[in-house]
């Protein structure tokens, strides 16, 4: 069964014929026209629109832009390639977690540590310990001038070391490998540190420095306050490893050496920097490299 559809135009013609009188009457209406002022205005507007000077196209603009894009793309590609070649290995990343362990210790672990630790007696009930702190450093063996404690306690500027700011990129790997975190030391260690009193404060004042320096110095444990509880300030003993085979190893402390490596990195002397890193690791085998340096380790 097919539906028969009439030609619409014929249909309209028929409709118009049917309403011929009406259409006739419409056509008899006054033939209104726009006013002369409208004609003038519109024609003037149309003329003005095409008389405007066309936008001058600069023929060199497109090739120039293309060339600039190519150069930029090549630069980015080269930087990416360079970054891929100096990608840090997995081992130093794991070390980074150890350095940051205090900050990242999950609350549940902290809670467990608190529960298993005897609560400290309020400060008021410990007169000796509270009164002692100023004299406590006197009781402790005085650090050698080149030792970690002396480095830590003196401002970095005095030693002519310029440290790079501790950037957020140093924490980039946080949260990826939580299982590699080292559990926090018992809070009792912190309690012991109370006895050392102000000696702990310079350490916290230069956290980025101390994390690397502290682990390199052959200081006895328990002298550096909170950072010790994190396991960072382990007794490393530079003297028990292989002797440094370079002259700088004999002359520079770990922190100065690190500073020198940073300068090399800033100067983009990466090859020399890597050499220095290797030498530093030989000289201080247990040293935890700062992350900004560790990423250049190969």
């Amino acid at each position: 069964m097919t539906s028969h559809r009439a030609d619409p135009d014929l249909e309209i013609e028929a409709l118009q014929l049917q309403h011929a009188a009406l259409i006739e009457r419409y056509r008899a209406l006054p033939a209104a026209e726009p006013g002369a002022h409208l004609d003038t205005a519109i024609l003037k507007q149309a003329a003005l629109a095409v008389q405007r000077p066309p936008l001058r196209r600069r023929p060199w603009l497109v090739p120039m832009a293309s060339a600039a894009s190519l150069v930029a793309a090549a630069g980015i590609g080269w930087r990416v390639h360079l970054a891929n070649t100096v990608e840090p290995s997995a081992a130093p990343r794991a070390e980074r977690y150890q350095v940051l362990e205090v900050e990242l210790n999950p609350p549940s672990e902290r809670q467990r540590a608190v529960e298993t630790t005897v609560l400290p007696v309020p400060a008021a009930e410990l007169p000796k310990r509270v009164d002692a702190p100023r004299s406590a450093p006197a009781a402790a063996p005085k650090p050698a001038p080149d030792s970690l404690e002396s480095i830590v306690q003196s401002p970095a500027k005095d030693r002519g070391i310029e440290f790079e700011p501790h950037t957020q990129s140093d924490h980039a790997g946080i949260g990826q490998l939580p299982e590699q975190r080292v559990p926090a030391a018992p809070l009792a260690a912190e309690e012991d540190d109370l006895a050392t009193g102000p000696a702990a404060s310079p350490v916290t004042a230069f956290p980025a420095v101390t994390n690397s320096v502290q682990s390199a110095a052959p200081l006895p444990a328990g002298k550096l306050g909170k950072t010790e509880a994190s396991g960072v300030g382990r007794e490393l003993g530079a003297s028990n490893g292989e002797k440094a085979d370079t002259e700088s190893a004999q002359k520079l402390s770990a922190s100065e050496w690190i500073g020198r490596i940073r300068v090399l990195i800033r100067q983009r002397r990466l090859h020399q920097a890597r050499k220095e890193i290797r030498a530093l690791q030989i000289a201080y085998p247990e040293l935890i490299l700062p992350t900004d340096i560790a990423r250049y380790q190969r």
């Binding site: 004609d39 519109i42 024609l43 149309a46 003329a47 095409v50």
Partner: peptide, 10 residues
């Protein structure tokens, strides 16, 4: 850009 063409259309 031919203004005359517009005038004819108008």
């Amino acid at each position: 850009g031919e203004t005359r063409a517009f005038e004819a259309l108008y």
